[in-house]
Nucleic acid binder design. Structure first.
Length: 262
DNA sequence: CAGGATGTTGGGTC
DNA sequence: CGACCCAACATCCT
């Protein structure tokens, strides 16, 4: 599930509940989900330190400890991850993979499928190696940076929007939603899109992400593609034309053949 | 039961 | 070298 809006929601969970908390210990029911070290070493690195203000870039979540000059806990949720805060000691979920036990509660990295995971970075440089190169965060990306990211691309616009090195944060769901709002066909080639069209895509990114972040996820809304795509006979919320679907960049893709012409 | 699923990576191709 | 495509990853659901 997690795309940028979901991860932003997890960042808020962390900011509201975990920031300022002292970490008593780390326990990892699924130790292999701690990717670049052992759960024991992770536990030693953060032992009795306090969660500082968390940050997010694209779909990555960063939880530094001790005012930001300590180590950084790096998290990626892939397709099925969540981050929850449980005050006190309630029963754990079957899919709680890594748990940060604090004095006032537990921060739990929960994940059904074990893609993503939790990393330990000693500093910002290590953090950047873990994430690999990322384009500008899609939330609030400015027009110039967006155009620069598309510059030189020749492939399909949906592929470019989902390429984290071009723009960090959009996934399959948000990319479809953005292109539907902008009236651009997902298979349109980037080099065939004029400046006005690219501007429309940029505006749609701003609109879709702002609204989604407000909801803490990509909302299932009337008047949005998400509100229709899972219907039995999905139709375009704008014009009523039956939606088409197919595969773009190996992902299931929905579009309106009337509003989104090639 | 086979096929898919909202993400990323690595390998191969053009 | 850059851009692109696709299979693989782990697990559950339809």
């Amino acid at each position: 599930m997690p795309e940028l809006p979901d991860v932003e929601g997890f960042r808020r969970v962390l900011a509201q509940h975990a920031t300022g908390q002292r970490i008593e210990r780390v326990t990892a029911p699924a130790p292999e989900v701690v990717r670049n070290t052992s759960p024991q070493a992770l536990g030693r690195a953060v032992h009795h330190r306090h969660f500082a203000e968390p940050a997010r870039h694209g779909k990555w979540l960063f939880a530094p400890v001790d005012d930001g000059d300590g180590p950084i806990v790096v998290m990626h949720f892939a397709m099925s991850g969540r981050l929850t805060w449980e005050p006190g000691q309630t029963r754990r979920d079957q899919h709680d993979r890594v748990v940060f036990v604090c004095a006032g509660g537990e921060l739990r990295f929960n994940q059904m499928r074990k893609f993503g995971g939790v990393w330990l970075a000693a500093d910002l440089a290590e953090r950047d190696v873990i994430t690999g190169p990322l384009g500008p965060d899609a939330l609030g990306v400015d027009r110039e940076a967006f155009h620069a990211g598309l510059d030189g691309r020749r492939g399909m616009i949906k592929s470019a929007l989902m390429d984290q090195e071009v723009l960090a944060g959009l996934g399959n769901l948000t990319a479809d939603e953005v292109l539907w709002h902008a009236c651009v066909h997902p298979r349109a080639h980037v080099n065939a899109l004029d400046v006005d069209t690219r501007d429309r895509v940029h505006e749609a990114i701003g609109h879709v992400l702002a609204e989604s972040v407000r909801h803490g996820r990509v909302p299932v809304l009337d008047g949005w593609l998400t509100g229709s795509r899972d219907d039995d006979e999905p139709t375009c919320p704008r014009c009523g034309t039956p939606l088409e679907h197919g595969t773009v960049s190996s992902r299931t893709t929905y579009w309106c053949p009337q509003c989104q012409r090639l």
